[in-house]
Every structure is written in C-alpha cells, then in structure tokens.
C-alpha cells in the first residue's frame, strides 16, 4: 500500500452553529490506499449533526488519482447538502493541475495557504 497519512484537527473561529475540521493529507492517494482512507472522512461526515466545514490541507499531498478526486467530489456533495462547506488549501501545482483538468476547481474553492482558507470559511 502506498504511504499516506491523514490527520484531523478541530477548526476554531467558525460562525455559531457550525463545526469544522482541518484535514492534513500527506503522501500519495492512489488505488492502493484511497478506499481505506476514505472511510475516515465518511465517518467524520456521518458523525456531525450540524453544518460541517472541511478544510483539506494538501500541502503534503504528492499525488491523487481520479478515484480520490471522485471521493472528494462525493464529500463535497454530502457536506454542502447539509449546509456545510469544503475547501482545499495549499495544494501543490501538480495537484491543482489535476483538480483543474477534471473540473473540480469549478466546484470547490482553493486557497494558497491554510490561513487563507481558515479566514475564508470563518466569514
């Protein structure tokens, strides 16, 4: 299995009634690991009763395949359907390139840094 680590921390400073998580992804998301890792995010989404904000910190993400983009799209659909928000922060050029070619940047906002993403979702 290709190496990837996902760590999740609470987001503070969100508007009342909203909760949020900052999700750090480090390594490569591919066919060998994405199904297993996706369960952690689905579990997180299913646990939340209030509108959820997810910031994906992709500063350590080296590669993502089309299936992992499919998961990201599905999380976006589920979270926004409940009044929440999903954004991407600090993605490397090759990751932004692949997100753009599949059209995901038309759906999900991207920010150059985690701090910029935090500022955007707190407003």
């Amino acid at each position: 299995m290709t190496d990837v680590q996902i760590t999740i921390e609470d987001l503070s400073g969100l508007p009342e009634g909203k909760s949020g998580k900052l999700i750090h992804v480090v390594g490569q998301l591919d066919e060998s690991n994405v199904d297993e890792k996706a369960k952690e995010i689905y579990s997180l989404i299913e646990r939340e009763s209030q509108a959820l904000t997810l910031i994906f910190d992709f500063s350590g993400l080296e590669y993502m395949n089309s299936k992992s983009i499919g998961y990201l799209t599905d999380w976006y659909s589920k979270v926004t359907a409940s009044g929440g928000n999903v954004v991407i922060a600090a993605a490397r050029e090759n990751i932004l390139d692949i997100l753009q070619v599949v059209g995901l940047t038309q759906l999900v906002n991207t920010y150059a840094t985690v701090d910029e993403a935090k500022l955007a979702v707190s407003q």
Binding site: I69, G70, I98, V102, L107
Partner: peptide, 20 residues
C-alpha cells in the same frame, strides 16, 4: 464529464488521459 460533474467515477479516461 462536464466541468461541474458530481459523479464518483469516470474522470480518469476522458479528462486526465483525454485532456493531456
């Protein structure tokens, strides 16, 4: 697979391979 496609699968061949 348009720009705001929400499906789970189907991007690899037409978008990643096809566009590049």
């Amino acid at each position: 697979v348009g720009e705001k496609y929400l499906g789970f699968r189907g991007r690899g061949l037409p978008k990643i391979v096809g566009e590049w």
